[in-house]
């Protein structure tokens, strides 16, 4: 910590204000993690306590508990502070079980896979 340059300290100051707060961490693969920030460094590596993954499929959602998580900084897109005064999700969204959200996720994935495979099948006809 003490050997890092002035600019690193500047960045640290940046995430320091989020310590011990409930955060939303968006990852590059689109995953959304929630948890309390307990530690971080200049690469935006982060330790989340009581982490869970929020899976959203259409109007359905589910928070899958994960526990204590270390996130490698390069996967981080955004770290957002959750305003505890505000609703985390729109009122019309429905909380469902882990099994139900996994089912909905699979159905969504199968639909996009089908689209992709149909496209592949059509591609070989495309001679121009």
């Amino acid at each position: 910590m003490s050997c890092s340059g002035l600019d690193d300290v500047f960045l640290s100051t940046s995430l320091a204000s989020y310590l011990d707060k409930k955060l939303l961490v968006l990852l590059r693969d689109g995953r959304k993690l929630l948890g309390i920030l307990r530690s971080f460094d200049q690469f935006a590596n982060a330790v989340l306590e009581g982490a869970c993954e929020r899976v959203i499929v259409g109007d359905l959602y589910c928070d899958i508990p994960l526990g204590l998580y270390v996130i490698r900084g390069e996967n981080v897109v955004l770290i957002g502070e959750l305003d505890l005064e505000k609703e985390e999700l729109p009122a019309h969204m429905i909380s469902v079980s882990v099994a139900e959200i996994k089912k909905a996720q699979k159905a969504e994935r199968d639909a996009t896979d089908l689209k992709g495979s149909m496209r592949k099948r059509m591609e070989f006809l495309d001679f121009d």
Partner: peptide
């Protein structure tokens, strides 16, 4: 900062309906 990491305050997502999980985010890195 030097990496061009950015911190925003008083944020709102341009296409809110598409990103419901961002509803209560007001500050972000």
């Amino acid at each position: 900062d030097q990496y061009l990491n950015i911190k925003l305050e008083n944020t709102r997502v341009v296409d809110q309906d598409k990103y419901p999980h961002m509803l209560s985010v007001r500050n972000c890195f």
